[in-house]
Design a protein around this nucleic acid. Structure first.
Lengths: 343, 343
DNA sequence: CCGCCAAAAGACAGCGCTACCATTTTCTTG
DNA sequence: CAAGAAAATGGTAGCGCTGTCTTTTGGCGG
């Protein structure tokens, strides 16, 4: 006898079935597809399960059925508040479904991402959410082999692995810079930190907008691989001002930097927007309440997370979306910090 | 024959064992406790596993061993940035271990918490992290029955379910208000939102500090059950000023509200700290860079998450901590916003 | 009242791994 | 060098559930 005799542990499906007077397999079906049972048996199983306080053993279910009800989520950072909103959307959407979220942090490393992807592969998740479109060849191969729906989030691009929900960072940055140009600004700086692929694309948008206006000047660009932080905004503005004292606007690749820039300006007595216009990116809540209120590019982060889960759930259940790539767009939120000079 | 013949799916332990020329159970041991194998077998299993690209099937492992390597985390909110930092600590600490984090959101509802706790119970987690000390009787009973180490985080209190990592919100608030009193402030307002149990305890700390100075006045207190937000800070300040026009300081239960208050003051031309002193709570990064810089109470959120996981892992492995309740304390960060009036 | 068909219920084996114990091998030591 | 202890390894069964197929049941027309 290899194991101790039956311990009195948690209630098993067999016990429920016995109490309900049905076979275990019928009880099993009750939990997966109650419609398949006759009304009488359905009620009996239901009350038996309630009476015993039965909770299915997920490990056994996963082993027997060869699949799980887990949605794997790969996100590059928890420090960056942007992903906080995305996660909120993901968790909110998952609560209505029967799927569980399993979240992992790639730390902006595509090799770490590859490793984690392999780990997920072994768990046979029901679906996968990955950030961005810059996966390694190997990662793409693993994803393709996984045989589950996959959504790439945060940006759109050509050649989706499966599905996508995002927006064009290039277009968003182009629009933000174009707005500053329309306000008559000419010496528009670019302040960027961390410089992940999406930030790189924002830089391209900035560059092309400036070139289109024949105002491009590499001295107006200041970037650092350092992770973003509010204090960094102040430091970077100081450095940029040293390189380009005639700066009359800044495009910050996120709102933390923008607020840091605002504070630095207050410290130095630089009038916003008269001397310097500021525009941020993402439109976090504080942008609207700052004094002066700060312009930004609103991105639909919560919706991205939420829609990714929705698409995944639909796809798992066989209802693949009409178009696999969803562009959630962006919106310019023009506020005091980029008002016309004489406004 | 109930199933199709052996499909060519993922590599199983048996395959690895065969290639290594050992029994499956020996191969199994390699993955759980390599020390138990002789060096020669260890090397053979290792290379066989690598060659075949073996990844253990976690569902089978969980089913056979009757336990998982999951740490369940119950946290009340993803919107509140405080928990972002805690989660970071949790995830960072878990990466060094073999445990996986399974996070769920209780939405500040103790009934939801109870429900989620039951769900976790069925999954037999290796450990559990729960927020706060205000669980239902039923929840406590479930936890006690779970037979796994449990850490309550975010605050300390009497009667831990098992272990605790946190600090005294009462003491922290008391200290913050005492500081304002020492600066000669007499009409110190309290601005609070959401009013979860921990915020309630901060209110008590405020109340007792004011009473001790014989300066308590209920008109100085303004709270709302609304979730916290930066704009809310401004609104609440406006309302409080209507009730108590002679206000000379505010204690905000978090930094978002404090920044909102600062912005509202800038809008109204209220001089900080001359007319009004401000102190927040948590010491988020932006507090130091604001102009004027904002005082706050530093709390060790990241460390709380990190230490909770560390304690859990230690406990699972039989090394229970010397003292089950860890007080991480707090630190008053005094900055310009609560400097003396003539400073 | 029979036969037919669809729907409902059940039988059975096995998913991939590990607990438990038995057995073999290696190491100590008088 | 024998004998006992300790370490390393293996055999077997089963964790709790579900996929597949088979059997039973019930409804209905003739």
């Amino acid at each position: 006898m290899p194991r101790k005799s039956r311990k009195l542990g948690p209630i098993r499906l067999t016990e429920v079935a016995k109490l309900a007077g049905v076979s275990p397999i019928t009880a099993s079906r009750f939990f997966r597809n109650p419609e398949a049972l006759s009304v009488s048996k359905r009620e009996r199983v239901e009350s038996a399960a309630k009476e015993l306080g039965y909770v299915p053993n997920l490990a056994a279910r996963a082993l027997a059925s060869q699949r799980t009800e887990v949605i794997g989520v790969l996100i590059p950072s928890l420090t960056n508040n942007v992903f906080n909103d995305v996660l909120r959307g993901i968790y909110d959407a998952s609560e209505g479904s029967r799927y569980t979220i399993q979240f992992v942090n790639t730390r902006y490393s595509i090799l770490q991402e590859e490793k984690l992807l392999r780990l997920f592969q072994a768990q046979k998740p029901a679906g996968l959410i990955v950030t961005g479109i810059n996966q390694t060849e190997e990662s793409r191969a693993v994803m393709q082999a996984m045989n589950c729906p996959i959504v790439q989030i945060m940006e759109t691009g050509p050649d989706p692995v499966d599905m996508m929900v995002g927006f064009s960072h290039y277009d968003a940055a182009f629009a933000a810079v174009s707005h500053l140009l329309q306000q008559g600004r000419k010496r528009i700086g670019f302040i960027g930190a961390r410089m992940d692929p999406r930030v790189q694309r924002r830089l391209e948008g900035y560059r092309d907008a400036m070139k289109a206006a024949s105002l491009f000047d590499p001295n107006l660009i200041l970037t650092t691989p350092t992770p973003t932080a509010m204090t960094l905004g102040g430091t970077l503005l100081a450095d940029l001002l040293a390189k380009a004292p005639d700066l009359d606007a800044v495009f910050c690749i996120n709102d933390d930097l923008a607020l840091g820039v605002l504070f630095e300006c207050q410290r130095r007595g630089i009038a916003i927007p008269e001397k310097l216009a500021i525009i941020g990116f993402n439109d976090m809540e504080f942008m609207a309440s700052a004094v002066p209120s700060l312009s930004s590019v609103r991105t639909n982060r919560y919706e991205m997370g939420r829609d990714a889960v929705t698409m995944l759930v639909e796809a798992v259940e066989g209802r693949r979306p009409a178009k696999p790539v969803v562009d959630l767009g962006f919106e310019l939120m023009i506020r005091e910090s980029s008002a016309p000079r004489n406004g």
